[in-house]
Amino acid sequence: MLRRNLMLAAALGATLLSGAAYAADPVSIVYIPKNTGNPYFDSIIKGFEDGCKTLGCDFTTVAPASAEATSQIPFVTAQIQRGVNVVAISPNSPDALNQVFDRARGKGTIILSVNSDMPGNETHRDAAILPVDFTKTGPSQVELLGKQIGYEGEIAILSATTDAPDQNVWIAAMKETLEKDPKYAKMKLVTIAYGDDDPQKSTTETEALLANYPNLKGIISPTTVGVAAAAQVVETAKKADKVKVVGLGTPNQMRRFIENGTVEAFQLWSPYNQGLLAAHFAVGVKDGTIKNEAGTVFEVPGLGKVTVEKDSVIKTQADLTTFDKKNIADFNF
């Protein structure tokens, strides 16, 4: 009994402590990327940092070593304990974090899913900041490749994992575009390969594509690891003029291939702007200046007007950015 009272006192003390911190301090935001050492998320972190510099919020980032489904959970719990106001996270699993998110939100922490959503589990987070209008990724990639191969010939897709939710949405849209739009009638999707976002597997899968489909004209790889591996294989096999590679990649990862002509163009969005937008949104919601509900419009300096859509989804930009020889020198991320 005495022990229980002691525990109660300890817990109470901690609550008081975090409560006091909340009243006095600026909004505190923590961003938890999928894993550490991933350059893509470094850009998002940079966006958060710059956003918080102008807004005056406290920003920290912590990351697990691996992108395994459960690796982020202890970090979220620790942030709740630290009394952080906003946890922004790029979730490693669409559902394994549900319980800990519920608990965080029960304690007043705002949960923002950044860079990808949690399909089917939207009720467990407060809002999702997505990089781009995902319905445009598929058609846009098909057009980028079509332009390079004269809208004709066999093409293949090299994706991440068979169940990667974002990639599967985009691939479905690619298929639909290829089928419905007469412009692409002569482009034939021969297969979809999965490189599991692993450099080695992506490499052997691409090599198998080249071996299995000697008439292949192009590869679309809507994942940063995949597109780099595909480009490397095509370069090694000296088939850059025969097989065009397009996809989603980061400029630093792809610069070499653009400069030596292996890849003509690829696409992405701005992870930096995602971080920036998320920081503004988080502070606004916490301050009460931004209402987290469909239809709210708010302004982010440098990004213009942004709308909160259905299910509290916010898209950072409408169209994808295309990188090629002309503009790649302007980007460093």
Binding site: T36, G37, D198, P199, T203, A228, Q232
Partner: peptide, 9 residues
């Protein structure tokens, strides 16, 4: 062979 080195991969 892979053209880059990632600390986590």
């Amino acid at each position: 062979r892979f053209g880059y080195v990632n600390p986590g991969i």
